[in-house]
Design a protein around this nucleic acid. Structure first.
Lengths: 304, 304
DNA sequence: TTTTGAATTCCCAAAACAGGAATAAGCTAC
DNA sequence: GTAGCTTATTCCTGTTTTGGGAATTCAAAA
């Protein structure tokens, strides 16, 4: 018998049972195994653990002392594996780590998570808001939401919506500078943008037929789409922004779309998670919920 | 891998090592085993414990949490078995339970134990003083000293001395009643005795050629040889007592022997212990010491 | 691009194990 | 006392588990 944990478990049971046979029955093993386990323990401890003859067994005092300590040890390990069973039994609890673009993470995502939390009070969330892709495996992320293609084959990605881009400006700015009629018109105007963290350059603007333009002189540049949006609202200049940032302001009239005919093909919005073989229940539940919520057009009514 | 303890041990090591290979080297096993143990744990917990690819391994946060708890559990069990090793390495410490006749336990035995205690400060003693044989196995005794034959085959007995019986009386009593010349004389005199716990009757007196006499009318009877001795010293009557009770008083003159020619064959004094297969070092040390001390004639100078 | 080194999978010999049958030895009831 | 019953133990054998060599895969480094 090499399995120390089982030896101790057998010993603890035997110490409480009236005899080895009873202990064996409780453990669902044969009495021979009990005998051997106890013998092995006795030889390891150099100490008699049971007074026994062919007829009866009584634990010695040293045995009782050992049983007392051993019970704690065995219980400690068992308790650990009981959690495992609870986990395997698909209990939804623990921390789920998510990453999402700022504008989504600060609004609709939080509502989805809040509902999940009501349903599963054991859930905790950790939210990393980044507009650029981050190394999800290294960052130990369970679920991500990203605007744009997910190329990485380590991920299971699910496209849930198509989010268009809008070129927008504040009404005050338009009143001052006039409404641009062509791309050229637009490129003469002050422009607001964001930084691509990976390259350090401004994000390009995208137009129909896959054409791009990287603005060179920006009136305002930031690493935050929310700041960018605030700048546009303040009349700093024109900007291109994804629907989930622009739509609320277009609806309220705080922003106005320009040159809609140049708008590029919408980009996919994807919910994704790393391809890890055992998917904990808590992750699956959140993933499914987000896929369902973000597939719901109500979150991204594509136009008024 | 069925051995949960080893699985956890491997996991804890891997969680601290830089990679599986290193963990395997530390544990003296092959990397395959590490892989398997971790996979098994992951499937049991339904939880990825390491982010890994063919090139690198990093523990997940859930893994770190588990490792933290698991370390305690594994350490708990290991600590238990470290004691076992200390025991096996023949450390002399712990409690030794002894039984002995009252008169021996209150005097010379205590001195032997005191010397042992000086030599092995980790030793503790538990002393059961009983003049009659007790069921040593049930009483969980490690070592016994007994005056008389040890018949029980469950014991390893070692005869260390021969202790004679003396018929004695106080000088004052002799002055009052005269010195008996024959057994008949003696049987007319007041007598002091002890009770045989097993039968409830007085202990017989023993004489040469195996003859016995059970005194019927006793001036004083007790279950304690020390009390019996005190009664004799106080002049209650005559008594027969073993050397280890009588000799000090014969030496000091507080008692006088009568009818020495009737004295029976001396009885053996034996040190014995239950036949338990692993004999803990502490028991062996004490046993050897007692055998040696009580074999030493200085403790029982058979006559002045 | 090639090279390198770690994780993993596959496979099989060796070790460990479990339990049936036989044995020994108390208790109990006659 | 003795027969019968029960339990611990030992021996033995078929089965399971295990560990590591060889081959494979794959990401990082060169």
């Amino acid at each position: 018998m090499l399995n120390r944990l089982e030896m101790l478990r057998i010993f603890c049971t035997a110490a409480e049972a009236r005899n080895f046979k009873e202990a064996a029955q409780q453990l669902g093993i044969s009495p021979q195994v009990v005998t051997r386990a106890i013998q092995e323990l006795e030889s390891q401890f150099g100490e008699l653990l049971f007074h026994r003859n062919t007829r009866q067994c009584r634990v010695t005092r040293e045995g009782e002392r050992l049983a007392h300590i051993a019970r704690q040890g065995v219980e400690g390990i068992d308790c650990l594996f009981r959690r495992a069973e609870a986990n395997a039994a698909q209990q939804v609890e623990g921390t789920v780590r998510l990453t999402a673009p700022e504008a989504i993470g600060q609004t609709s995502l939080v509502h989805s998570l809040a509902r999940l939390r009501q349903q599963y009070p054991g859930l905790h969330f950790e939210l990393h808001l980044e507009d650029d892709e981050t190394d999800v495996v290294d960052e130990q992320i369970d679920i991500g939401i990203r605007h744009g293609l997910i190329r990485d084959s380590r991920f299971v990605a699910r496209q849930v919506a198509e989010v268009p881009f809008f070129m927008v400006a504040a009404p005050a700015l338009l009143a001052r500078c006039g409404v641009p009629r062509t791309l050229k018109d637009l490129q003469q105007q002050p422009v607001v943008g964001t930084i691509d963290q990976r390259t350090g350059k401004p994000w390009p603007w995208f137009f129909r037929q896959e054409s791009q333009w990287i603005p060179q002189e920006l009136a305002f540049i930031s690493n935050s789409t929310q700041a960018e949006c605030a700048a546009v609202l303040a009349g700093f200049g024109f900007a291109q922004m994804p629907g989930f940032v622009a739509i609320p302001h277009l609806r309220s009239g705080d922003l106005v779309e320009v040159l809609p005919e140049l708008a590029p093909t919408p980009w996919a919005l994807s919910v994704y998670r790393p391809q890890r073989s055992p998917v904990p229940a808590r992750v699956r539940v959140v993933y499914d919920c987000l896929v369902s919520d973000f597939s719901n057009a109500a979150f991204f009514p594509l136009l008024p």
